[in-house]
Design a protein around this nucleic acid. Structure first.
Length: 636
RNA sequence: GCCGCUGUGGCUUAGGGGUAAAGCGGCUGAUUCGUAAUCAGCAGAUCGUGGGUUCAAAUCCCACCAGCGGCUCCA
């Protein structure tokens, strides 16, 4: 926004002739004495952040107004100050907002009509401060900038602040108890920790989360200082795990009946339906601003809009429903700096995002329950038993009063006490949601699976279907992420492994996610040939061999540090008997750190591993199967 | 975003106004080994980046960047 301030003895203006964008006239002509005249050009970029621009312009104007001691203010639209003007509609909106803002500060303020050719006479006082100009910039940087953070809050945010929520625990008998009065005991310590985290939302911690060291040491992922924080690099092993998880979620959701789609990762901020979302989290958008008149874009924070915009253009009959769409969606959220930790919260992450269009609440509840169970199955396959996460179910009071049995049913399915949050009013788009929350080694909770029942966005995006009577109706939309963000699953797997190590259990990944599933360790150089001859027989598994010139002890230790599930040592004895001496990490018992050692032949080993990973996706090891050929991505 | 702490060879760290120390890793050589680190030698750092104070800065000051923790919050 360009501003030119003239402290005047008087200004006279008269509207002469309309332009195409003329606003309605209040007074055709005016003479104002002792006025600070503010010539204003609203610019294209101001549309990015109206509230900020208005607030800033008002602040500047008042400051100058007070400094020069003018008696009143005249806002005078003056397009000629800029060559990159905002749209007329927006300009009028902004000018009015500025007018109202100043008016609210008990300043006498007049506004010259927008969109008219005006004749004017102005007498400038000529004192040193009588002519000033200001530019208000929304952007930082030239081509790609970020919108400056604004304190202004959207309606939705205000509603959220007003909404009162209360925590309960519902036990498996369906009894609802105020959470503070629930007896968690030792058995439900994890649920208590989750509740504390949810209600207090704070936890004094002086340690780096264990998974951060692990993600580096295991060559999974690492920070990338040359990017924006929260945009990580993934090493081959991490990329493998990530891809396997993605493969798994993708096929599972396809089996459930969702059609995979792909939608753009960036959208125009000008789309009216996107506005509410954006305003709710004004500081959390990754914004990209085109030059000049090009559209202003932001990176999506979920796949919702893409799929909603697609749904809007579909023709849907009640016969087709429920309609399920899925996307493995790279998503972007400019989370606050202090919130970014390792793989737990990122600015760029992959969100499996499924939406289900349902005919009515009955169908929505039915699907909700199936997706609730789907979430449990998915987490179980990834490696989280129901002991590893805590269930939260959140809803509005109205919803609960109408669907008590449904909630009880959900708790029954969970088979253990569940944290309940009840809101006195709906402040956002959903009336019911659940999450499965992982509580990490430092007592922090984060959501994995989640489903929400959305009663608002069908209207906002104009999504409709034809019901049995031929009438158009709004569907109810379910938002579902069966696993939660892929990176977050990896975080939870690492934290879980750490927690198990603390309890004396060797840390490891589930076999189907282990980068190396079987390692062969030749004792001396003369055994290399035999080991290599064994490799083809183990094809279809991720197998490698430690052919480095190191002692056996060293190789065993290194295999352990890599959490390799099956380690087979090969020496003279094995070559002679055509067997392998296999140490099974997952079967270590008692207080010994060592795994269970077994003699088996190659086929036995292969069968065993294949059985254990049956039904799970498989990918080849993306690294040389000879350790001596393998680069180190992370030192130490 | 704000507040606090931190930033030393590839990695993990020691040192803390007088131009850097160790272990791991790497390389070379010896060793060919039976279940959690074989031995010896060599190379490798202008101490996050930029500025300032000083005869002298890794060390003190300022700014920035990054990590961690806290606040806030998580569509």
């Amino acid at each position: 926004m360009q501003l030119l301030f003239i402290h005047s003895d008087y200004i006279e203006y008269e509207a002469k002739e309309k332009t195409r964008v003329a606003e309605e006239l209040e007074t055709a002509s005016e003479r104002v004495e002792e006025a600070l005249v503010v010539f204003i050009a609203v610019e294209h970029e101001d549309e990015q952040n109206v509230d900020y621009v208005v607030a800033k312009a008002a602040e500047e104007t008042i400051s100058i107004f007070n400094k020069v001691g003018a008696e009143r203010i005249v806002l005078y639209p003056y397009a000629h100050l800029s060559s990159e003007l905002a749209s007329p509609d927006k300009s009028v909106e902004i000018l009015r907002a500025l007018h109202d803002n100043l008016h609210a500060q008990n300043v006498e303020v007049k506004k010259a009509p927008f969109g008219w050719y005006k004749a004017f006479t102005l007498r400038c006082k000529g004192h040193p401060l009588s002519e000033l100009s200001r530019k208000i910039t929304v952007l930082e940087g030239a081509e790609v900038g970020e919108v400056k953070e604004v304190e202004a809050k959207s309606k939705a945010l205000e509603a959220e602040e007003k909404a009162e929520s209360q925590f309960f625990v519902m036990d498996d008998q369906g009894t609802l108890l105020v959470a503070d009065e629930f007896d968690f005991g030792a058995e439900r310590a994890n649920l208590r920790q989750f509740f504390m985290y949810e209600s207090e939302k704070r936890r004094a911690v002086d340690k780096v989360p264990p998974h951060v060291e692990l993600m580096k040491r295991l060559e999974i992922a690492d920070y990338e200082p040359s990017s924006d924080p929260g945009n990580l690099r993934f090493y081959p092993k991490g990329e493998l795990i990530k891809t396997l998880l993605e493969d798994y979620v993708r096929t599972t959701v396809a089996e459930y009946g969702a059609a995979e789609v792909e939608t753009p990762i960036m959208y125009s901020v000008k789309h009216p339906a996107l506005k509410d979302y954006i305003e709710r989290f004004p500081a959390r958008q990754y914004s990209m601003v085109g030059k000049g008149a090009k559209p202003d874009l932001f990176l999506r924070f979920a796949a919702c809009f893409g799929q909603f915009l697609m749904s809007k253009d579909m023709s849907i009959s009640y016969r087709n429903m429920p309609v399920k769409m899925f996307e493995l969606a790279p998503s972007f959220r400019k989370e606050k700096r202090g919130e970014l930790v390792g793989l737990r919260r990122l600015r760029k992450f992959t969100m499996p995002d499924m939406h289900t269009l349902c005919r009515d609440m009955d169908e929505a509840l039915n699907e909700f329950k199936m997706q609730y169970e789907l979430g449990m199955r998915v987490l179980d396959s990834i490696g989280f038993s129901s002991n590893d996460y805590e269930v939260a179910i959140r809803f509005t009071k109205d919803f609960y009063d109408a669907n008590k049995d449904f909630i009880t049913d959900l708790v029954n399915i969970a088979g253990k006490p569940v944290l309940i949050e009840m809101w006195d009013q709906r402040f956002f788009y959903f009336v019911l949601k659940f999450e499965f929350n992982f509580v990490d080694a430092l007592g922090k909770a984060s959501a994995l699976s989640t489903v929400q029942i959305d009663v608002e966005n069908a209207e906002r995006y104009d999504i409709k279907y034809i019901d049995t009577s031929g009438a158009e109706k709004r569907p109810i939309i379910l938002h579902c992420s069966p696993s939660g963000a892929i990176e977050r699953c990896m975080y939870a797997l690492l934290e879980k492994a750490y927690l198990e190590k603390e309890r004396g259990i060797p840390p490891m990944f589930p076999l189907w996610l282990s980068p190396t599933q079987v390692r062969l360790i030749p004792i001396a150089e003369r055994h290399l040939e035999y080991v290599e001859s064994v490799l083809p027989a183990l094809s279809g598994l991720r197998v490698d061999m430690d052919d480095r010139e190191e002692t056996v002890s060293k190789k065993i230790r290194d295999a352990g540090r890599e959490w390799i599930p099956y380690v087979a040592v090969v020496g003279d004895k094995e070559v002679e008997t055509k067997t392998l001496s296999v140490t099974i990490r997952g079967e270590s018992h008692g207080n010994t750190k060592k795994g269970n050692k077994q003699e088996m032949d190659v086929l036995e080993l292969k069968t065993r591993v294949e059985q254990e990973i049956r039904g799970k996706p498989f990918r080849q090891l993306p690294l040389s199967n000879k350790l001596s050929k393998r680069v180190k991505f992370v030192g130490g």
